[in-house]
Lab assay of single mutants.
Amino acid sequence: MIINNLKLIREKKKISQSELAALLESSRQTINGIEKNKYNPSLQLALKIAYYLNTPLEDIFQWQ
């Protein structure tokens, strides 16, 4: 199971779900699903999230 700190990191950087979704060329619903652990992002999307949040991938997503 993958757990994530996306919501915590996103809020700390003062970025809304909609703003992050626009940067990622994704939907706000996708970001919401990832944050609620209802959806696991593809590797490509996970890497883009890490890039746009300027945060190491392993700080956002962790195996448990």
Rank of each mutant, 00 (worst) to 15 (best):
R10Y: 08
S26I: 15
Q62D: 05
N4S: 01
I3H: 07
P41D: 02
F61T: 00
I2A: 07
L47D: 04
N32R: 15
I49S: 00
I31D: 01
L20A: 01
N5F: 09
K13V: 08
N54S: 11
Q44F: 09
P41T: 04
Y39I: 15
L57G: 01
E35V: 03
D59Y: 09
T55K: 03
I9A: 06
N32D: 15
Y52K: 05
S16W: 07
A50C: 05
E11W: 05
T30M: 14
N40P: 13
K38T: 13
L8H: 14
N32P: 02
K38S: 10
I15H: 03
E19V: 11
A46Y: 03
L43T: 07
A46P: 00
K48S: 07
E25F: 08
D59M: 11
K36V: 10
L53F: 08
T30L: 15
P41N: 03
P56I: 07
Q17E: 04
L57P: 02
G33N: 15
K7C: 10
K14N: 14
L45N: 02
E11A: 08
Q44V: 11
L53V: 03
I60A: 01
I2G: 04
Q29N: 12
L43Y: 14
I3M: 12
A46K: 04
D59C: 13
I34L: 07
I2W: 09
I9F: 08
T55D: 02
L53Y: 01
I60K: 01
N32M: 13
I15P: 00
N37M: 07
Q44M: 10
K14R: 12
Y51E: 10
S42F: 04
A21E: 03
L45R: 01
L23E: 06
L8D: 14
I2N: 06
F61A: 00
L53H: 00
I9N: 02
T55S: 08
D59K: 10
I15Y: 08
K14D: 09
Q44R: 13
N40Y: 13
I60N: 00
R28V: 15
I3Y: 07
R28Q: 14
E19G: 10
K36H: 13
K38H: 12
S16H: 04
E25W: 07
M1Q: 05
S42D: 10
A50R: 01
I15T: 04
T30H: 11
N4Q: 03
P41L: 07
K7W: 04
E58N: 12
T55G: 04
